[in-house]
């Protein structure tokens, strides 16, 4: 093609650019703002560990943990999403809104640890996804156990073991 043919072709084809507010929709895999499903988060801070620009912070208190995210610092590399063991993080497949000052879109979520049904102390809970990964079948018994803190769970386990042995001996 010579340049003249290209010019003619362009003229024939018509306008291909868009005026400003119009835009091409982003693809399905677009890496937008990071979204968290707080119910699934275990507060392991893997996301904060892999975050190069320190956009994600996880801070732990005695009874709560905070997950905070500042899109102004985010590089949208998606490594937090890949590193999340419970798939609690997702990236929005749409362009983030335009904002004027840094930190305008920053979010902080606080999640209180549930209290142990045994001793009443707050503890880090295993999420649904982790439970399903650990136990092929989440039975009612397991559910009860998981509502206890690790210490109480241990006690409960020992108790049931002792009980089981007692029954075994009694049957013998």
């Amino acid at each position: 093609m010579s340049i003249w043919e290209i010019l003619a072709e362009n003229l024939r084809q018509g306008v291909v650019t868009l005026r400003y507010p119009q835009r091409v929709p982003p693809p399905a895999r677009y890496r937008g703002l990071v979204q968290i499903e707080l119910e699934d988060c275990v507060g392991c801070a893997s996301c904060a560990y892999v975050c190069v620009s320190a956009a994600i912070h996880v801070t732990e208190e005695r009874e709560t943990f905070c997950w905070s995210y500042d899109p102004a610092k985010c590089t949208f590399c998606g490594r937090c999403v890949d590193a999340c063991p419970t798939s609690a993080l997702q990236m929005q497949a749409e362009c983030p809104p335009i904002y004027h000052c840094a930190g305008a879109l920053a979010v902080t979520y606080t999640r209180a640890y549930p209290r142990c049904e045994g001793c009443g102390k707050p503890f880090k809970v295993a999420t649904q996804i982790l439970r399903q990964r650990a136990y092929t079948e989440v039975s009612g018994e397991v559910e009860t156990l998981l509502r206890l803190c690790p210490v109480c769970r241990q006690k409960e386990a020992i108790k049931s073991m002792v009980e089981a042995r007692r029954i075994k001996e009694a049957t013998r």
Binding site: V15, V16, R19
Partner: peptide
Amino acid sequence: RKILARLQSRI
């Protein structure tokens, strides 16, 4: 400018 734009398929 307009002709140049149209020759390049721009608005």
